[in-house]
Design a protein around this nucleic acid. Structure first.
Lengths: 134, 134
DNA sequence: ATTTATCCTTCTGGTTTGATAGGAAAAATG
DNA sequence: CATTTTTCCTATCAAACCAGAAGGATAAAT
């Protein structure tokens, strides 16, 4: 039941971009890597899906870097985790009934659905802006 | 962010024992394995820590099996998961500050603590009795 | 004695995780 | 135009974890 480094580092990355939001200069990965003590090479991998999902925009070349594509209060931690971790449901069957042949009769499914909702709510209720000011 | 089969199968196992609670005969693993379509050999492994934690009692030999050591309303899903999955916190630092050198300054820790509380509450509020009648 | 169970330890193939490596393409600067 | 800075893209790899099988020892009932 652990979040991987993808979700954790990715959230830190996004918080750095949120803190830089509204400034003229985009924030390069070298700077984020320095502040967060994570290798540039690894951050490069994490930022690809975030950009593909439209949360981030990039500018190449010298003085390039990344900026948020939306305001910090329009991006939730849940979105970030979904992109980097995939489905964060504690059990696959909650989102994919075909995962388990006992789907109909399983006496634990309601349990996992309750758990799933609690998790989703705890991360989708929080935006980058909320997290910054906390 | 997935529960492993240990937690999922273990919960199903415990629900079978809960359904059998109060009856004269203990429930053997062969029967649980048949009902849940899980191998006896794997269930044997899962039941060891549950017994060690005092949630289950056993009777060896023919007509042996397992019974809950407490009433179904005295055992929570959270306890079961804790025993079988270990610490279910989404990130290690929530329970172990020494995990991360940036513990003090990390801007995401409060986030994970909120998430952790939501998860714990969602499983510790539910007893085996609750789950049975749901 | 035989059968039905729990109990105990070990092993292993497969997948996922957490990176590192090497270089190509693009934009700014001098 | 050459250099530097930066994003972009693909591949590779060791270590850890997961899911389960295997093989047998011990105990109790019949």
């Amino acid at each position: 039941m652990k979040l991987s480094t993808r979700g954790r580092y990715g959230t830190r990355l996004m918080l750095q971009l949120a803190a830089n939001y509204g400034k003229d200069e985009p924030l390069p990965l070298t700077e984020i890597a320095r502040r967060e003590e994570i290798s540039v090479k690894y951050l490069e991998q994490l930022i690809i899906p975030l950009k593909a999902a439209g949360l981030i925009e990039s500018r190449r070349g010298a003085h390039g870097g990344y900026v948020l594509a939306k305001a910090p209060d329009e991006i939730t931690i849940g979105q970030i985790l979904q992109i980097l971790e995939g489905n964060i449901s504690p059990v696959p069957c909650v989102k994919d009934p075909s995962f388990c042949i006992k789907y109909e009769t399983c006496n634990t499914r309601k349990l996992w659905e309750t758990m799933d909702k609690a998790i989703i709510q705890s991360v989708c209720d929080v935006t980058l802006k909320d997290a910054l000011s906390a």
